[in-house]
Computed example of a mutant assay.
Amino acid sequence: MGVFLFIVLCSLMGSVASANGIMLEPDRPFLRVKIFERAELECCYKNAVNNAIWVKRLSSGQPEPVNLSEEVFQNYSKSNGKQCGFLTLKNVKLNDTGMYQCHFNNTDVYTHGTYLQVFKPIEKTINLSESTKNKILTAEGVLLLLCVVIPSASLLFKSKKQNRLEMKKMKQEEENIYQGLNLEDCCTTYDQIERSQTQSQYQDVCTAMEEREEILEKP
């Protein structure tokens, strides 16, 4: 990251003179291209005896000449004392990512360079239109609402049913309390109890009178 920032700062600077008298123009620091698309790199300089060749920096930091082909080629232009080298990659691939610089033969002079990044876009798994997406979102909203309403309604129904069963059970228990009781039998039993109590009282009075009479008859 620090090396990349250093390259960017160097590229933003003006022309730089090398020990060989070559004046380096600022390069484009960064270029991002989609895979299989066309990429064009440029390096410009002044006072160079020969045209520069394009090299690519490897991960180890060592430069390696770019392999030219029908898909990868370079050309040059010259105007007003300024020379420019161009590197064209017709169909970039992921392994084309790297730092590209111009190098001058028989010298240790390199241009600032351009970092080329090749990216692969994220592909859609299912290509849906906006109207279809809206319909799916609406359906999801309805399903979510049903998932909330149906369980709530079911719990409410069960609660009401439970209350009805409890009320019915209480009513049956009340009926069972009075079940088997006969009012006539109750009245008969009550009368018998009353009579027995009355007779016992009368019997006690009579017995007491007889005892008194016996006591009085004795001399």
Rank of each mutant, 00 (worst) to 15 (best):
L156R: 10
K56T: 07
Q197R: 13
E217K: 13
D185Q: 06
Y100A: 01
T125R: 14
A139P: 08
Y76C: 02
M170T: 12
K124R: 13
L116R: 09
V55C: 09
N47I: 00
L41W: 01
L89G: 03
K158V: 00
G14D: 12
Q83R: 07
E40A: 04
K158L: 01
C186D: 14
N75T: 15
Q172A: 02
I193C: 10
T188E: 14
Y202C: 07
E210M: 07
C10R: 15
P26I: 04
N127I: 07
K120W: 09
V72T: 12
C44Y: 10
N182C: 01
I177V: 15
L68Y: 13
K78H: 06
I35T: 11
I122T: 11
G141E: 07
L156S: 08
K133Q: 09
C43S: 15
N163G: 04
M23V: 14
E184R: 10
E173F: 01
G81K: 10
E174H: 11
C84Q: 02
V16N: 13
V142E: 13
G81Y: 06
A19W: 15
A153E: 08
K161P: 00
I150K: 05
R38Q: 12
Q62E: 14
Q203N: 13
P151F: 01
L24A: 06
N105M: 10
V16R: 15
L87P: 05
L156D: 08
E140L: 03
L156F: 13
D108L: 02
I215M: 13
I22K: 11
T125I: 10
L89D: 02
I177H: 11
L87E: 03
D204K: 03
E64M: 01
I193Q: 14
K93H: 09
T114V: 04
S79P: 00
K171I: 03
L165S: 11
G61P: 11
N134H: 11
I136D: 00
G81P: 06
L143G: 07
V49M: 06
D191R: 13
M13K: 15
F30W: 10
Q162S: 03
K158P: 01
V72S: 03
M167Y: 07
A19N: 14
F6C: 13
S131C: 01
F30T: 13
M170H: 09
Q197D: 08
T207A: 04
R32P: 04
T207F: 04
N47S: 10
P26G: 15
E130R: 15
P26Q: 13
C186S: 12
V109W: 09
V118H: 14
K124V: 01
N50C: 04
Q101F: 03
S196F: 02
Q74G: 05
E70N: 15
A19P: 07
M23W: 12
N51C: 04
L94T: 08
L128F: 04
L94I: 02
F86W: 07
T114N: 12
M167G: 05
Q62V: 08
R38I: 03
Y202R: 13
I7Y: 11
F157T: 09
Q83C: 02
A52V: 08
Y190F: 04
L183W: 14
N106W: 00
